[in-house]
Structures are given as C-alpha cells and as structure tokens.
Nucleic acid binder design. Structure first.
Lengths: 149, 149
DNA sequence: CCTGAAATAGCCAGGTC
DNA sequence: GACCTGGCTATTTCAGG
C-alpha cells in the first residue's frame, strides 16, 4: 500500500468505471500494472467491490431516515437476523452506547415509515430521525496520516 | 423506469464494473441497448456515479463511529460549511429531532478520535457511538412497491 | 432496440530491470 | 517483485435501419 495504490484508490472511489488505461496515463504507468495492483487490493480486501450510487428520491423513495434502536432483552439477536431481510435498510451498524443499533433506511411514503416503525417496535425502543438533506455522501477514503506502510 | 431498468440498476449496484454485454445477455438485449438506458439514467440523476467500496480497517482506520451533534445557536451554518473539509467524514446528514446532524466518520486511532471530538465541540453538543460491526453495508436499492411507472 | 464495424480497453504471455 | 511491450480477446461506441 504505497502512494501509487492510494492514487488508484482515489480514482476508483471517484469513478469505479474509470478505465485502467486512463488511470495509468495519469500515473505514468501501463494498464497491466494498474490491473495487477487493483487485483491485489481486491484480494487483500482493501477493495470490497464496485457499486453504482443510486438516488433514492429519483426512484420514488420520499423519505430517508436514520433510526436508532435500543433492543429489549433477548431481542437483539432476533433483530440482527431479521435486518438483512428488510429491503428498506441500506446500512445498519451495531454501536456502543445506550442504543445498540443504528440504521439508514429508505421509505416510500408516510405510511411506509409508519409500518416500518411498527415492525421495529417488536424488537426494541426506536428513535427516528428523518433525513432533511445529505451534506456529504460517500466521501472517498484517503490515506491515513499516521500510516507508515 | 420500467422493470428492465430496475434489473440493470440491480446489476450495477451489485457490481458497477459488470460489462454491459453480460447485463444484456441476462436480459436478452444487446449491449448498446443497455448502454443507452444507463446513459439515460445517469442523465436523469437516477445513477449518481460509480464508486469502489474500500474497507477502512484495511487502510489502517481502527475506528469507525457515528456521531450525532446538536448545534449551538448560530453554529449550524458554520459547521455545515466546515464538514466538507473534514477527511474523516464519510457521510453526513441533516436530520430532524433534538440532534441536527449525524455523521459517519473513520478514525485512525484513539488519539484521532479524541482530536476529532475536540474539533466538533466548538460547534455543538456531540454524542459518539463507536461502530462495533456493520450488519448491512450498501444494500442495493430496489424498486419501490408503490411505484406505478 | 437491433446489427455490424470501428475504436478502446482488458488480459495473457514473455522479457527486462 | 514490479513493470513494460506486444498481440489477442472482450467490450464499448457509433452508425444506419
């Protein structure tokens, strides 16, 4: 993980479909060299995949929300098993603090939001924060300053 | 936005580098047809880009955290202006509720976490939740059920 | 939306430092 | 080990229908 790899990561986080030839041009390298490095980063788990970023609003999801949940005793495990089946959940984290879980969800309308919360209250006490706007979205990960290869 | 477009979105959310030829094969269409549809979805803002998904741990970020912040009076605007400059912030949302802001951050170590919180307390009251594990990561967006094209 | 051709890009040797 | 070049294959892109 030298500086070249971080330049490659930077490019691919900005546009995952950018051709290796062009990345190579900007770095003064050939495309096989880039390809080798990318494959190695994929194998090492540094690169976990490539995803299209889709706008929920454009698909008809009127609301986005952050929901924290404090699980009832014995209900955390069942919830963790349930969450992967919920299409509304885009991201879900186990966290420290009085709440156990925080998830980012997309909802089609008010009724959908209500039904979703109803579903959750079987597992714990929830707190819902409707998203007003996204200030930063998928900011690329840079090189850790403390990192000494 | 018909069912074909949603199939394409599904594929590209799973792997943004999947060739259009292969997507076309699975849908019984030619690659130019896929290309046209993708370009149209990009122009409409449905597809906002393509990003490599990078593992923070593999880069040397030891902590990930969700931080909520309740801004002091007159401090929300300055914070919103500041946030885009912070490399630690991967996502940041304005939300409803007693807190105004929630952000997802990556930190290199304990000291980094401390410095970052110190920076934030100039703007408001913070609550930090260290991420223990990510239960769901970047779950693909599906077709809204209520959507009637 | 298709086909078919042209331009690009990715990929597999083999060779160099 | 990391990189380059050359040639082959795959993919994208562009035209016309």
């Amino acid at each position: 993980m030298d500086v070249v790899n971080f330049r490659i990561l930077e490019a691919l986080q900005e546009d995952a479909r950018m051709p290796f030839t062009r990345i190579g041009q900007e770095l003064g390298m050939s495309s096989p060299a880039i390809s080798d490095r990318v494959k190695k980063m994929e194998d090492l788990g540094v690169i976990r995949g490539y995803k299209a970023i889709v706008d929920p609003k454009a698909l008809g999801y009127q609301f986005q929300a952050m929901i924290t949940l404090r699980a009832f005793v014995g209900k955390l495990r069942p919830l963790l098993d349930k969450v992967p089946q919920l299409r509304e959940v885009r991201n879900c984290y186990r966290i420290t603090g009085t709440e156990n879980i925080i998830m980012e969800v997309v909802l089609e309308d008010q009724g959908h939001l209500e039904r979703f919360i109803d579903l959750l209250i079987a597992y714990g006490e929830t707190r819902t924060h409707v998203v007003l706007s996204q200030v930063i979205a998928q900011n690329p990960l840079g090189r850790p300053l403390a990192k000494k290869d």
